[in-house]
Computed example of a mutant assay.
Amino acid sequence: MIRVLLVDDDPLVRSGLRLMLSGADDIEVVAEAGDGGEVPALVDEYAPDLVLMDIRMPGVDGLAATRLLRARPRPPAVVMLTTFKADDQVLSALRAGAAGFLLKHTPPAEIVAAVRRVKAGEPVLSPAVTEQLIAQVTQGTATDQRPEATEARTRLDRLGEREREVAVAVGQGKTNAEIAAELYMSLATVKAHVSHILTKLEHTNRVQIALTVHHAGLA
């Protein structure tokens, strides 16, 4: 079972999420919270695999709660929820360690699929959020002139040739299976490369790898 903690200040939103997730045989909502400040204690008590959390809450918001969780040993994955198509905190949330970002009006089947993908180690981003993310990463001065680009290229220089190929494929949104087929590797080899990339780049999830690749202008 995939154990999920729901965090949203709106009880109706939590109720709707619980209803849609309860229809899946492999997902269990173990607890709910109305504020990010409740999250650490609930994680200790219920040990969820994934936290589905609103980014905007009046008390401790999702961004602050994510930072608190990612600072802990073996934290659960975090998927952010928002009602805004162009949320100005997308990049901040992903840099803080969120494994994905979904719009609240995402169809139920897609939210269930997203929970499963994150549990499997894959990132999830609604198409509208992906468009906004790419726009934020590429806006402003030329890519090769931005400080983020220099830092990203420096990080990627730590990788070996095959690791770099895998990183670029991750940045293009490919799954492990797609990367394995494209680069003629076994699935186990791809997973090993991703693990090494995370360590070398000092990242916590695939979304951060993708951000680095985009900042470097390679995807």
Rank of each mutant, 00 (worst) to 15 (best):
1 M>P: 08
2 I>M: 15
2 I>W: 03
2 I>F: 15
2 I>L: 15
14 R>V: 06
18 R>V: 07
20 M>V: 15
26 D>M: 00
27 I>W: 04
29 V>C: 05
29 V>S: 01
30 V>C: 14
32 E>F: 12
34 G>R: 04
38 E>L: 08
43 V>E: 00
44 D>Q: 14
47 A>F: 06
47 A>D: 09
49 D>Q: 01
53 M>D: 03
55 I>R: 01
56 R>N: 02
56 R>L: 07
58 P>E: 14
58 P>A: 02
59 G>R: 11
63 L>T: 04
66 T>W: 14
66 T>N: 15
67 R>M: 07
68 L>K: 13
69 L>V: 03
69 L>Y: 00
70 R>S: 00
75 P>Y: 03
75 P>H: 07
76 P>W: 04
78 V>M: 13
80 M>S: 07
83 T>I: 07
83 T>L: 10
83 T>V: 10
84 F>R: 06
86 A>M: 14
86 A>T: 13
86 A>W: 10
86 A>E: 13
89 Q>H: 09
90 V>S: 02
90 V>P: 07
96 A>R: 03
97 G>S: 13
98 A>W: 03
99 A>T: 15
103 L>C: 14
111 I>T: 10
111 I>N: 10
114 A>F: 12
117 R>K: 11
120 A>F: 11
120 A>G: 10
125 L>H: 04
126 S>R: 05
127 P>F: 11
127 P>V: 13
134 I>L: 12
134 I>V: 12
136 Q>G: 02
137 V>T: 12
137 V>H: 11
139 Q>I: 11
140 G>M: 00
141 T>A: 07
141 T>H: 01
144 D>C: 03
147 P>K: 13
147 P>D: 01
148 E>G: 01
151 E>S: 03
151 E>M: 08
154 T>I: 05
155 R>D: 05
155 R>H: 02
155 R>K: 12
156 L>W: 06
160 G>R: 05
160 G>C: 09
164 R>W: 05
164 R>M: 02
165 E>V: 02
168 V>K: 09
168 V>E: 01
170 V>M: 11
171 G>S: 06
172 Q>R: 15
173 G>P: 09
173 G>A: 11
174 K>L: 10
175 T>P: 06
175 T>A: 08
177 A>H: 05
177 A>Q: 11
177 A>W: 01
178 E>P: 03
179 I>D: 08
180 A>W: 03
180 A>I: 01
181 A>C: 08
184 Y>C: 09
186 S>P: 02
189 T>M: 13
189 T>Q: 12
190 V>N: 08
190 V>S: 15
191 K>R: 15
195 S>A: 14
195 S>T: 03
199 T>I: 04
200 K>F: 12
202 E>I: 00
203 H>C: 13
205 N>F: 12
206 R>M: 15
207 V>S: 09
208 Q>T: 02
212 T>S: 13
213 V>A: 02
213 V>W: 06
216 A>Y: 12
217 G>P: 06
